[in-house]
Design a protein around this nucleic acid. Structure first.
Length: 568
RNA sequence: GUUCCCGUAGUUCAACGGAUAGAACGGAGGUUUCCUAAACCUUAAAUGUGGGUUCGAUUCCCGCCGGGAACGCCA
């Protein structure tokens, strides 16, 4: 289904051709309602190229524009913009056709790809904390959106379940473990022994060496250590699963770092043989001498002591995703501090001949109150689980106040949808690159531009249909009289223009902002236009408008991983 | 030191190079015999700094100031 934007863009192209002008500029939504609904700067661009008065060029273009079926006569404005204002009749027709469309007007991609999305990736032996929320929620939303647009998506949780820290965990387990504490709160006890061992290792070389030995035994397949490791992983996974359950986030595969252990020697061997890697100071290293920004930043793939590291694992991971999973695209939803690391990994992949599209999708950090990056060792991290449970509690309290008549089960359900929605929306509604200082206030806010504002619009519509006791009657064309109706309908038509844009720069915030505007248009409509009490044919038309709004809200929220309750 | 990210109302955030920089919270004022007032309406308030490119710069380029991050054996 064509959007207004694509229809008008085509008509503009025809007009330019008819006027003997080359294609130029672009046709975009108007920046301000007073300029109409869409605008083009074609005349400004052409005026510059041809050294002509842009307004004259604009008039010439307008003379060839045939848009009478869609818009009022296009207006030349300002320095030479051409503005388009949609006719209510055209909007009414388009809205009705979207209403009848399962995809709500959103076209599927013309170039579907197989995308592995690497997101979340918590570390075993460390509880998930607020710092994990961005990757997890952002990655999940991108996965939902990519899938909706027609891509094949494989969600992969690249769990940090292997590496140096396990030497310490195992040493701690053997020497410092408190069995009773382990029974009460396994993960907390594992974290405790890990931290204590870490502290000991800093000051005591003997402990350090003992940890290294435990690690060597583990990596060599020692039965006792493997069993301990399995137990730690299992305890951690329980914690992760609880969080994923609350967030309703699920993975297709969970290939953690340990999954690649057997492949690491082969990776290093191959890179050495092909000349991509070389031995330097006893380690195996890849240099990027021909790339200025990486020239003095080599990538170590095997340590002097023969051990493998993060980079080795990630190279093996690229192989697996491209060769075994047959992905043509991989999105790494991982924080900005790892920019250099991924530049190196991607360059190594390229040197091996891989052509796949590998993207590091970065995002800003959540900072502590000191404006410093939150770090596990600092000990002041808010556990994610605690944050999520607090969100539900706060939402629950407000549900009790606002709607005491709901049953207990309903209250619990609604509180979870609102609480989880708020946490997700707080993150997704802002530009992914900006850092922000963590605050309960921010994450759990339920006022203003927040999930409940959008959810409430949906709830109000569901309430109308409950009261009506009927679903919206099927009609071919809406009747748009009040300006609030027209604005709402126009907004509904924009859904199809908005969703595909998100993946241009991986910005779910575009969708979040759209949904906020939509909810705002709906609330305004709701105040201005009675639905059930209006006369036919307005009544049927308004019911249709409500029904479509509910569908778009529901679908849009779903793409962000947010649920819409029936009541609240 | 090198490289990367970020500086917008009191606060938290918006604005593919577009026209008079939008919201939300907080502040001030108003709306409910009517479909959920978790709503609606009115109102005051901002682009760190100096240049440059452009018809047009919050956006692109250069310098400075301020905040953060990464940079050979952690992941």
């Amino acid at each position: 289904m064509e959007t207004f934007q694509s229809l008008l863009a085509k008509k503009l192209s025809s007009a330019l051709a008819a006027a003997g002008l080359p294609d130029a500029g672009e046709l975009t939504p108007a920046t301000d309602p007073r300029f109409g609904d869409y605008q083009t700067n074609a005349a400004l661009v052409l005026g510059k190229q041809r050294a002509e008065n842009p307004r004259e060029v604009a008039k010439k273009i307008v003379g060839h524009l045939d848009v009478n079926d869609l818009c009022e006569p296009p207006a030349v404005a300002g320095p030479g913009f051409i503005n388009f204002t949609l006719l209510p009749g055209a909007v009414a027709e388009k809205t009705a056709s979207i209403w009848g469309d399962e995809r709500l007007g959103v076209a599927e991609t013309e170039s579907p790809r197989r995308i592995v999305i690497d997101f979340g990736s918590p570390n075993v032996a460390k509880p998930m904390h607020v710092g994990h929320i961005r990757s997890t929620v952002l990655g999940d939303a991108l996965a939902r959106i990519a899938k909706f647009l027609g891509h094949e998506v494989i969600r992969d949780n690249h769990i940090g379940d292997w590496g140096t820290q396990f030497g310490m965990v195992i040493y701690g387990w053997k020497n410092l473990l408190d069995q009773r504490a382990l029974q009460q709160n396994p993960l907390a006890e594992i974290v405790r022994i890990y931290k204590e061992t870490n502290t000991l290792a800093v000051s005591d070389p003997q402990v350090r060496e003992a940890c290294r030995q435990e690690l060597v035994k583990l990596q060599a397949g020692d039965k006792e250590n493997i069993d301990l490791w399995n137990e730690c992983v299992a305890f951690s996974m329980q914690d992760f699963e609880h969080v994923y359950e609350l967030l309703d986030i699920h993975y297709d595969i969970q290939c953690g770092e340990s999954f690649y252990n057997d492949r690491l020697p082969g990776v290093v061997e191959r890179l050495l043989k092909s000349g991509i890697a070389e031995v330097s100071q006893g380690a195996v290293v890849v240099f990027f001498r021909d790339i200025p920004e990486l020239a003095d930043k080599p990538c170590i793939i095997r340590k002097r002591d023969g051990g493998f590291n993060y980079a080795t694992t990630d190279i093996a991971t690229v192989d697996y995703r491209l060769d075994d999973l047959k992905a043509d695209t991989v999105w790494y939803v991982v924080g900005a501090p790892q920019t250099l690391h991924f530049k190196q990994i991607f360059e190594i992949a390229r040197r091996q001949g891989y052509q796949a599209d590998l993207r590091h999708i970065t995002f800003g950090s959540i900072l502590g109150e000191d404006r410093k990056l939150m770090k596990t060792r600092s000990g002041e991290n808010v556990p994610l689980r605690e944050l999520l449970e607090e969100a539900c509690r706060r939402a629950r309290k407000i549900v009790e106040e606002k709607n005491p008549d709901l049953s207990d089960a309903e209250k619990t359900d609604v509180a979870q949808k609102i609480g989880m929605g708020s946490v997700k929306y707080a993150d997704l509604s802002q530009y992914r690159m900006t850092d922000y200082v963590f605050s309960w206030e921010k994450m759990l806010s339920l006022q203003g531009n927040t999930a409940p504002y959008l959810q409430n619009a949906y709830v109000r519509i569901r309430s109308i249909f409950r009261k009506a006791g009927e679903s919206a009657p099927k009609i071919d064309k809406l009747i748009l009289g009040d300006s609030a109706e027209i604005n709402l309908a126009k907004r509904l038509c924009q859904f199809a223009e908005t969703v595909p844009q998100i993946l241009n720069d991986f910005r779910p915030s575009i969708l979040a902002n759209y949904l906020f505007e939509l909810a705002n248009n709906f609330h305004t409509f709701y105040e201005a236009c009675p639905v059930l009490k209006s006369e036919e044919p307005a009544r049927s038309s308004r019911l249709a408008l409500c029904d479509l709004t509910a569908q778009v809200l529901y679908r849009g929220l779903d793409l962000l991983g947010i649920k819409a309750p029936e009541k609240m």
